[in-house]
Design a protein around this nucleic acid. Structure first.
Lengths: 145, 145
DNA sequence: ATGACTGCAAAGCCTTTGCACGCAA
DNA sequence: TTGCGTGCAAAGGCTTTGCAGTCAT
C-alpha cells in the first residue's frame, strides 16, 4: 500500500461526496484524511481518539462513516465483539481479508486470487448482484499457538 | 438439513456441555432445543421471543449462547448492523455461508467446495491455526434487483 | 441568506453484570 | 447440602438522534 494509493482514495472519496451533494465540511474531511492513513480496519472510537485534538465530535465521525459506507467508499466489518470497524474500499478493486486471532485479537490481512475467483463464481451462480464480500478466518495466530 | 441432523447437534451440544462441567439447567437446554430448530442464523432477541412463554430469561439466553460459542458449538455472526446472530456448528463440519441483501435484509445461504478449498489453502499458507471462517457476500438479491 | 454541517449532550439499543432465589447433583 | 443456574432489574458500551450555533455555498 503506497502513499499514492491512499491519496487516490482520499481524492476519490472527496470527489464522490461532492458529487453526491455533500458540502465540504471540516469534520467529514478530517475523517477522510484519518481513514486514508490506515491500511487496515479502524474502529470509530480509534478515529475519535485521533481526531479529538482536532476538535471533531464523535457524532460527526459516526455520521461521516455512515455516509462513506453508503457511497461504497468504506467497508464495515465487525472486528471485536460488538464493535464496528471500517476499511477503505479502493476504486481499483484491490482488497484484502482478515485472519483474526481469538486469543490476542490480532488482525492479520491476507489476499488470495483463487479465493476471489471462487467468490465471484458463487455470486454469479446465485444470480446475486454482489457489491461487496468479506472473508474472516478465526483461530489462533502463530504467536499464540 | 434433516431432523436427524438437528437432533445430532442437540445431543452433541448437550453432551459437550456436560463434559465441560455444566449442569443440565432448564434455560440452557431450552436454548439448545430452540437452536436445533433453526437452520440459519438467529439473533438472541429472536430466541428470546420464542422462549419467553417458556419463562426463560433473556440473560440466560445470552449466557447460554456465549457458553455454546466458547465450546465451538455455535458460530457468531453479525447479521444486521450491530446485531449478533448465531448458527449451529455441525460436528460433521458441514456448513454454509451467506449472501445478504442490503435492501431487504434477506439472508441467502450457499455452500461451495472450491471456496472452502481456497480458504483452507490460505490458512495453511499463513500458518494460522484456523478454527472457523465465514464468508459474507453483500449486494442486491434477485428479488430486489 | 439559506440550509447543510457540526459539537455536545441525551437517548437508544443490544448485551452484560449483580444479586437473591431455586434447582441439579 | 453445596454452589451452579436462573430470572429480574440495573448497568455498560457503542452508536444514533435532538438541538442550537456555525459555516459552506
Amino acid at each position: 500500500m503506497t502513499t499514492a494509493t491512499r491519496n487516490r482514495w482520499a481524492e476519490h472519496a472527496l470527489g464522490k461526496l461532492q458529487a453526491a451533494g455533500y458540502r465540504r465540511g471540516g469534520a467529514r474531511t478530517a475523517v477522510v484524511e484519518a481513514l486514508s492513513r490506515h491500511d487496515c480496519a479502524v474502529t470509530a472510537l480509534e478515529l475519535d481518539d485521533e481526531l479529538r485534538r482536532r476538535k471533531v465530535g464523535r457524532a460527526s465521525i459516526y455520521r461521516a462513516l455512515e455516509q462513506l459506507e453508503q457511497l461504497g467508499l468504506l467497508r464495515r466489518l465487525e472486528a471485536s465483539r460488538g464493535v464496528a470497524s471500517y476499511e477503505r474500499i479502493e476504486p481499483g478493486g484491490e482488497h484484502h481479508h482478515h485472519a483474526i486471532c481469538s486469543q490476542c485479537g490480532r488482525m492479520i490481512p491476507f489476499e488470495d486470487a483463487s479465493l476471489e475467483r471462487a467468490i465471484h463464481a458463487v455470486s454469479d451462480r446465485m444470480s446475486f448482484d454482489a457489491a461487496e464480500h468479506e472473508v474472516t478466518i478465526r483461530g489462533r495466530c502463530d504467536r499464540c499457538a
